[in-house]
Simulated assay, not measured.
Amino acid sequence: MTSIHSPQQLGDAIRTARKQLALTQPQLALAAGVGVRFVVELEAGKPSVRLALVLRVIDALGGEMALNGLPGVMAGAQREGHADGA
């Protein structure tokens, strides 16, 4: 698991995963249903990217986002029937 503490770290992690999967930025954009400019800005660490689109890119790379260390996150998710915390 990769800990992310800044937009730049998120961009670096996305770029590394994309390259490990031998995808170009346009290929990733197509797979995620986002524009190439979005992928470029995300990888550059732009702090104002849309979370919904970030999640689509992460999903297209085969990843998932998880929150750790927040009080009540798991208890609330389990009440809603989502044991995975999503």
Rank of each mutant, 00 (worst) to 15 (best):
V39P: 01
L21N: 12
G76I: 06
R37T: 08
V73I: 08
A83D: 14
T16C: 02
V34D: 05
L51I: 10
V57E: 06
T2S: 02
F38C: 01
R15L: 06
H5R: 09
L23N: 03
D12C: 01
G63P: 04
V39G: 00
I4E: 04
V57C: 05
A66K: 15
G33I: 03
G81I: 05
G69T: 10
F38H: 08
A83Q: 14
E43D: 08
V54R: 03
A29L: 03
E80L: 15
P7Q: 07
E80G: 01
V57D: 05
V49K: 14
V54E: 03
E43R: 06
A22D: 09
V39W: 10
V39C: 01
P7M: 08
R56Q: 13
P7N: 07
G69E: 15
G69K: 13
R79A: 15
R79V: 13
V57F: 15
L61P: 05
V34E: 06
A66L: 15
G45W: 15
A17E: 08
L23Q: 08
A13C: 04
T24V: 00
A44G: 10
E41P: 00
G81K: 09
T16S: 06
T24P: 01
A77N: 12
A52H: 12
R15A: 10
L42Q: 05
R50Q: 13
I58N: 02
L53Q: 13
V57R: 11
L67R: 13
V34K: 10
G35A: 11
M74N: 08
A29Y: 07
R37M: 08
R79P: 05
P47I: 02
H5C: 00
Q9M: 07
I58R: 02
R15K: 12
T16Q: 11
I58V: 15
H82P: 00
A60I: 04
E41H: 10
Q20M: 04
D59E: 13
A22E: 09
T16G: 01
L70S: 04
L61E: 11
A60G: 05
S6F: 14
Q78E: 15
G62S: 12
K19W: 06
I4W: 09
G63V: 03
E64K: 13
A66Y: 12
